[in-house]
Amino acid sequence: MAAQLTLKDVSLQFGGIKVLQDVSFGVEPGQIFGLVGPNGAGKTSLFNCISGHYKPTSGSITIDGTEVSGSHPATLAKHGLARTFQHPALQLEATVLENVLLGAHTRLPGGPGEWSLRLPRTGRSERVLRSEALALLERNGLGWAADIPADELSHGLHKGIELCRALLMKPRLLLLDEPAAGLPHTEVEHLIQTVRRLRAEDDITVVIVEHHMGLIAALTDRVVVLDHGRKLMEGTAAQAQSDKRVIEAYIGKDAADDAA
């Protein structure tokens, strides 16, 4: 079942630098939600707070009503959260299938000690997960590449591998960090169709950080616009694109006035 994400007054400070200031919003189960804003707005920092890579200075982050602020990424995975990164973190010398299987560690029974003993139930679980990983690759058009080393494939295919790895975690809440970055138009169109299919078929809540406004407009139910670490506005993508404050944040007040 898709997860609900709620942020209330989330702030993040490094020394005297305020990176995020009192950011609040809610993402309903099954929504595709966008986080947008100019460079330096705090989008990735907020993603890092949600996914456990940063601990907020103050505020609350809940998944289905359970407080998760400051939780370790492995703990958040048990709450159904998975994420991708702007620059895919792959083991380039490993095969595509091996990279996808790295997403299965939260689903293996026992722990490292039991895994090293190669007990029967560990072997059974590994066979099931391998089958699931191959099915995910086939479903996302990468079945042909399962046994190819990742470093022989393009940046766009690396994005697809990382998405499959995140999906193998069986997420209910999926965070996509600039999934369209560096992709040509045809691959962006494929990405849009893939995310739509995930929401329709897998019952996943999706939150996207993205600069590609065409993708945001095509996919999202709602967006939050950040500027200098604060929430500037919340609404639909169309409302954001026509909001004077958003236009000023992206292209500057003088340019916005000239365009008016």
Rank of each mutant, 00 (worst) to 15 (best):
Leu92Phe: 15
Ala74Tyr: 09
Val68Leu: 09
Ser154Arg: 05
Ala94His: 14
Ala146Thr: 11
Gly111Asp: 13
Ile161Gln: 03
Pro120Met: 00
Leu117Trp: 06
Ile63Trp: 09
Glu162Val: 02
Pro73Arg: 00
Pro109Thr: 02
Glu132Pro: 02
Gly70Asp: 08
His79Asn: 10
Arg130Ala: 06
Asp147Gln: 15
Thr75Asn: 12
Arg83Pro: 01
Thr106Phe: 10
Leu97Pro: 14
His79Arg: 13
His155Thr: 03
Ala146Phe: 04
Leu136Phe: 01
Leu102Ile: 08
Gly110Ile: 04
Leu157Ser: 00
Arg118Thr: 07
Arg127Gly: 03
Ala82Phe: 07
Leu117Gln: 10
Thr66Glu: 15
Leu101Met: 15
Pro149Phe: 09
Thr122Asp: 14
Gly110Phe: 12
Thr95His: 09
Ala77His: 13
Leu117Met: 10
Glu138Gln: 09
Glu162Ile: 04
Thr122Ser: 13
Leu137Ile: 03
Ser131Asp: 07
Leu142Phe: 02
Leu157Ile: 15
Ala135His: 05
Leu76Thr: 01
Asp151Pro: 02
Arg121Asp: 10
Glu98Asp: 10
Arg118Ser: 11
Ala104His: 06
Val68Met: 10
Leu92Gln: 14
Leu137Pro: 00
Arg127Phe: 01
Ala135Pro: 01
Gly103Ala: 05
Gln91His: 13
Val100Tyr: 11
Glu126Ile: 03
Leu129Arg: 05
Ala133Tyr: 00
Glu132Val: 00
Glu114Met: 11
Ile63Gly: 02
Ala82Glu: 06
Arg118Lys: 11
Ile148Thr: 12
Glu67Asn: 13
Gly113Arg: 14
Asp147His: 15
Ser131Phe: 01
Ser131Thr: 12
Thr75Met: 12
Thr122Asn: 14
Ala104Ile: 04
Leu137Cys: 00
His155Trp: 06
Ser116Ile: 14
Leu153Ala: 04
Gly103Phe: 06
Leu153Pro: 07
Leu92His: 15
Glu162Leu: 00
Arg130Pro: 02
Asn99Thr: 11
Pro120Lys: 02
Gly143Asp: 07
Gly80Val: 09
Lys78Tyr: 13
Gln86Pro: 14
Ser131Tyr: 05
Arg83Ser: 02
Glu132His: 00
Ala150Lys: 08
Glu126His: 08
Val96Lys: 12
Glu162Met: 01
Thr75Glu: 14
Leu129Met: 10
Glu132Lys: 04
Ala94Ile: 01
Leu108Asn: 07
Leu134Lys: 09
Leu108Phe: 14
Gly156Asn: 00
Leu76Ser: 07
Asp151Lys: 12
Glu138Tyr: 05
Leu117Cys: 04
Arg130Met: 04
Ser131Met: 04
Asp147Arg: 12
Leu137Lys: 02
Glu93His: 15
Phe85His: 11
Arg127Gln: 05
His105Met: 10
Asp64Asn: 15
Leu129Thr: 03
Ser125Arg: 11
Ala150Cys: 08
His155Gly: 14
Arg107Trp: 06
Leu136His: 06
Leu117Ser: 05
Ala145Phe: 06
Ala104Lys: 07
Pro149Ile: 02
Glu98Thr: 05
Leu92Cys: 07
Arg107Asp: 06
Ala150Arg: 01
Ile148Ala: 04
Arg139Trp: 05
Leu157Gly: 01
